[in-house]
Simulated scan of single mutants.
Amino acid sequence: MKSKYMDAQKIITTLKHKEFIKIVHKGNCFEDGAAVYAKEIKENIFLLFIILKDIDIENIQALIAHFDCFNSIGLKEPEQVMFHLSIKDKNDLHYFEQYLKASHN
């Protein structure tokens, strides 16, 4: 039986292959220990994946947000958040993939 839960390592590997860059965050914008990956999708508009490690469940936040520059991610709050999704299982990830496909049309 396949698990409905995600494999965070598999997702991180996929993000690296899709040219996402791991953000070293020093500010208070993200939880300590969170792995943050970002990719610019339009000028100063970024797609972020924030992978939070909890004791019982993996939680991934997907975010499309406007920052003044790439280097401000993790140091400053975004100027605007256009989309936010909490991904807790594979069904949520499927819905997010559908959103991304629709946004390219």
Results as ranks from 00 to 15, higher is better:
71 N>A: 13
58 E>W: 08
88 K>F: 10
6 M>H: 02
73 I>M: 05
41 I>Y: 04
7 D>M: 04
76 K>N: 14
92 D>L: 05
34 A>I: 04
52 L>Y: 13
73 I>Q: 07
69 C>T: 14
81 V>N: 08
6 M>A: 02
67 F>K: 04
87 I>L: 07
21 I>W: 04
86 S>R: 06
96 F>H: 05
1 M>P: 14
95 Y>S: 15
67 F>T: 04
101 K>I: 07
3 S>Q: 05
100 L>A: 04
96 F>Y: 09
102 A>T: 10
21 I>F: 09
46 F>A: 00
4 K>Q: 09
86 S>Y: 02
50 I>W: 02
92 D>M: 01
87 I>F: 00
48 L>Q: 01
71 N>I: 10
28 N>R: 12
49 F>A: 09
62 A>M: 11
59 N>K: 15
86 S>I: 09
16 K>N: 10
39 K>T: 03
9 Q>I: 02
90 K>T: 09
20 F>S: 01
85 L>Q: 14
27 G>K: 05
30 F>N: 04
61 Q>W: 11
34 A>L: 01
40 E>K: 06
17 H>A: 10
38 A>P: 03
57 I>T: 14
97 E>T: 06
9 Q>E: 11
53 K>M: 04
8 A>I: 10
65 A>Y: 02
42 K>L: 13
52 L>S: 11
75 L>R: 12
72 S>L: 07
43 E>L: 09
71 N>M: 12
5 Y>A: 05
24 V>L: 09
85 L>P: 03
40 E>P: 08
63 L>K: 14
91 N>A: 13
15 L>A: 02
93 L>W: 07
28 N>L: 08
64 I>P: 07
15 L>M: 02
16 K>M: 06
70 F>S: 12
33 G>D: 06
88 K>W: 05
42 K>H: 09
44 N>I: 00
105 N>T: 09
17 H>S: 12
28 N>I: 07
6 M>D: 03
4 K>D: 14
62 A>K: 10
92 D>C: 03
38 A>Q: 02
45 I>Q: 06
94 H>I: 13
29 C>R: 12
27 G>Q: 08
105 N>C: 09
61 Q>N: 11
102 A>P: 07
6 M>R: 00
25 H>Q: 07
6 M>T: 01
37 Y>H: 02
43 E>P: 13
98 Q>L: 14
19 E>W: 06
20 F>I: 01
79 E>R: 13
62 A>L: 10
68 D>N: 15
30 F>A: 04
31 E>A: 12
19 E>R: 10
52 L>G: 06
26 K>D: 13
53 K>H: 08
11 I>F: 00
85 L>N: 08
18 K>A: 12
2 K>F: 15
3 S>I: 03
41 I>E: 00
81 V>P: 00
40 E>A: 03
86 S>P: 06
80 Q>D: 13
69 C>P: 10
35 A>K: 13
56 D>L: 14
27 G>S: 04
22 K>C: 07
84 H>Y: 12
83 F>R: 05
44 N>C: 07
60 I>H: 02
39 K>R: 12
18 K>C: 12
